[in-house]
């Protein structure tokens, strides 16, 4: 007896081992990975929209360079290093899964979670420092952009940490190790967004 199938998908006998990650017949991409890429496409429009609108307004407001001088460049640079490192440990977790070493993958994922936590602590410190000086989200359009863009990014970091921990818990039980790659792709995207936010809000604005 075969398991029911959707159109275009070959029948899988019930006695056969389940595929590691079932590819879709039309695209040859595993369904979960394809879903992540579609989700990231929507995220590109969200973050890209914020970034492009900020750039348009920044070009009309050269005086924002003086406001950007109040951002904490050192904290932003450290956070960039932290996220790059968390991306490295996340991709090494994926590589460990591919080698069949789930224990090492679990450790590497925990390192990514730790780095993500460090990022959020530094971000909280930055926000506190800026708000105490009077630079709040309603202090002006530059600060509205700054808090909106970095705040939305921080929420994505927080969501990513929850997702990594959930996948890690399953991996520790030997379940669904292929999801390490999927959550990793999302985590790298969070890193890519920060790669653009850091120069936009901390570096180039000083020009």
């Amino acid at each position: 007896m075969s398991t029911p199938t959707s159109p275009g998908r070959p029948a899988v006998p019930a006695s056969s081992p389940a595929p590691y990650a079932a590819p879709r017949a039309a695209t040859s991409v595993p369904t979960g990975r394809l879903g992540i890429w579609w989700f990231l496409a929507s995220e590109v429009v969200i973050f890209g929209g914020l970034v492009t609108i900020y750039v348009l307004f920044r070009l009309r407001h050269p005086e924002w360079g003086k406001l950007a001088a109040h951002t904490m460049t050192v904290a932003g640079a450290v956070n960039t290093l932290v996220l790059l490192t968390s991306s490295l440990t996340m991709v090494l977790a994926h590589e460990s899964v591919e080698r069949g070493n789930l224990r090492l993958a679990s450790q590497a994922m925990l390192q990514s979670v730790f780095a993500g936590g460090v990022f959020l602590v530094i971000k909280a410190f930055e926000y506190t420092h800026e708000i105490v000086q009077g630079f709040t989200p309603v202090a002006g359009l530059f600060w509205s952009f700054y808090f909106a863009m970095t705040g939305l990014h921080a929420l994505h970091v927080l969501g990513g940490l929850v997702a990594i921990l959930a996948v890690r818990r399953a991996v520790q039980r030997g379940e669904n190790p292929h999801r390490v790659e999927y959550v990793g792709i999302y985590w790298h995207f969070v890193d890519v967004v920060w790669i653009f936010l850091f120069p936009l809000l901390y570096l180039a604005s000083r020009g």
Binding site: S16, P17, P19, V97, E98, R99, G100, E175, H178
Partner: peptide, 8 residues
């Protein structure tokens, strides 16, 4: 059926 096959 096992949950996953052995990665290559």
């Amino acid at each position: 059926a096992p949950a996953t096959s052995v990665p290559a």
